[in-house]
Design a protein around this nucleic acid. Structure first.
Lengths: 123, 123
DNA sequence: GATCGATATGCGTAAAAATACCTATCGACT
DNA sequence: AGTCGATAGGTATTTTTACGCATATCGATC
């Protein structure tokens, strides 16, 4: 019995989805989504960055950038205290993440549907 | 009468869709799609690259890369002759472009549908 | 068989994006 | 009041990616 002939050079479909400003500049993509979710879980930006294996500098810059483009804060930031400080998601941020989640789920379903037709068409 | 409050920091949804190899390496994205369509129209890779404002070198490299990953030729290439040479899309390439088109249309519809819900959810 | 222009490809350079480094500041807690 | 660790942010460095340059090759047409 022969193996399917497309086993070696098989193609896959990938996509990226992100929020952008009118300028085209990216605001929230997969990375920022994960970062914000991690902030939510860890309670601090530093801990989130460490956990994701990225630098604090980048994480901080990404969030600041997103906040500037959105025009509102994504995290409530606190310095000082025994633990040095903390970051907590704003309600708007939580809302945004939920919406992003829902959006991504819909797109995942759409692409899965389309993928079958696509493969049929190119074979 | 007040303008809608989201006129300045409005957000948009953007997405990219591409074919990738198992390795994750990109094969065909928007750029390659346009390039191949232009080759189809112009009958030569050079003319296509010129028209799109990119270099022949890059265009050639992109197509070669895609062909290697796919495991088949996207263009029939001819050197010599009065016009120096030409490139013509293979049937497989035409097929692929059609499938890519259909896929993109479906995704455009899906994202348009999801966008309304998204905006409602974050406002 | 000489010509001409597109295909073919290596390689050096430049532009851009990501990452790293460093130093300051804040404030709840002890 | 002193400490500690996270937030804050400027600047340098590295890595990646694209672009440009140069040069060879091919072959239908004349």
């Amino acid at each position: 019995m022969k193996p399917p002939r497309s086993s070696r050079n098989d193609v896959f479909l990938r996509y990226k989805l992100w929020l952008s400003a009118v300028s085209g500049e990216g605001i929230i993509g997969e990375g920022q989504y994960l970062l914000l979710r991690m902030v939510e879980e860890k309670g601090s930006l530093k801990a989130a960055a460490d956990e994701l294996g990225t630098s604090y500098r980048k994480a901080w810059g990404d969030i600041k950038n997103a906040e500037e483009l959105l025009g509102y804060e994504l995290t409530d930031k606190h310095r000082g205290g025994k633990d040095g400080g903390k970051s907590v998601l704003t309600n708007k941020a939580k809302n945004l993440l939920e919406a992003y989640d829902a959006l991504h789920k819909k797109m995942d379903i759409a692409i899965e549907d389309a993928y079958d037709d696509f493969k049929e068409q190119i074979k």
